[in-house]
Design a binder for these strands. Sequence first.
DNA 1: AAGGTGACTAACA
DNA 2: ATGTTAGCCACCT
Length: 111
Amino acid sequence: MSFTDRVLAAVGRIPKGRVASYGLIAGMVGSPQAAQAVGQVLHRLDTSSDLPWWRVVNSQGYITVPCLEHPAIMQASLLKTEGVTVTQKNSMFWVDMRRFGVNLHHDQTNT
DNA sequence: AAGGTGACTAACA
DNA sequence: ATGTTAGCCACCT
C-alpha cells in the first residue's frame, strides 16, 4: 500500500465533527515527518472524492487551503455543518484543536 | 533520473 | 509573541 493510499485511508478515519492536523495524519501512516507530503496528497485529491478532506487543518488549527476548487470558506462551512466551531481570526479560519482535535479527547483509534 | 514543489512543522532571530 | 528559515517527505515534471 502506497503512502498516498495510507494517507487517504487515515483521513477517511477522522471522526465526523473532529479535525486532525497534517502532522498527525503523517504520524498515523508511520511518517511523522511527512506532514508536508500529506498536504501534497490532499492537494492532488480529486474534487469528486468523497474523502473528508475538510477535517484536516494545520498544527495550529488553521485552515490553509489555497486551492480554488476547495476554498477555505467551503472547508469552514463543512466543518461547521459537522458541529465544529470555526472562528475567523485575521481573515483566516481557525479551529480549536484542544476541543476538536482527534488525538485528544476519546479517540476512535482503529487498527 | 534529478530537481522542484507544496493544503507542513518546529526551531530561530 | 510574531516573522522567517531550514528540514522533511513523497509526488510531479
